[in-house]
């Protein structure tokens, strides 16, 4: 199997399993209590951590190189858009437009 298909099938099965696990733990009250306590403790910091790390690496890196390019303009636009309370689809469009604009100017 190609690497691309391995990635595809693993990502799919992991997510299917994790969604199903929620149903599974509720079948056992003790496991449910223990799981919900751990989830409660970790979720508030886990999500901001993963999301921030993803944003930083997607915007400021190419392979193993630190970069500062048009994607940074997209990030600023996305931050401003969310701050202004724009609809998600508009935030995405603004980010793409800002990045495109900087690329156009610099090309």
């Amino acid at each position: 199997m190609s690497r691309a298909w391995t990635l595809t099938l693993l990502t799919g099965s992991v997510t299917i399993a994790l969604k199903g696990a929620g149903v599974l733990v509720t079948a056992y009250p003790t496991a449910r209590r223990r799981a919900s306590r751990l989830i409660e403790q970790i979720t508030p910091v886990l999500l901001p951590t993963v999301l921030t790390a993803l944003i930083v690496t997607q915007v400021f890196s190419a392979g193993r190189h630190l970069t500062l390019d048009a994607r940074a303009a997209g990030l600023v636009a996305a931050l401003l858009g969310t701050r202004l309370g724009l609809q998600p689809v508009l935030v995405l469009a603004t980010a793409a437009a800002a990045t495109a604009a900087v690329r156009l100017i610099r090309s």
């Binding site: 508030p44 997607q58 994607r71 997209g74 935030v91 995405l92 495109a100």
Partner: peptide
């Protein structure tokens, strides 16, 4: 790439981050 498609994924994460960084620990 000229259309900035690669900026949409980090923008999605910014949208998801909203409301999740209200606390000091976050």
């Amino acid at each position: 790439q000229a259309l900035g498609v690669d900026a949409m994924s980090p923008a999605l994460f910014v949208v998801l981050l909203k409301g999740r960084v209200a606390s000091r620990e976050a």
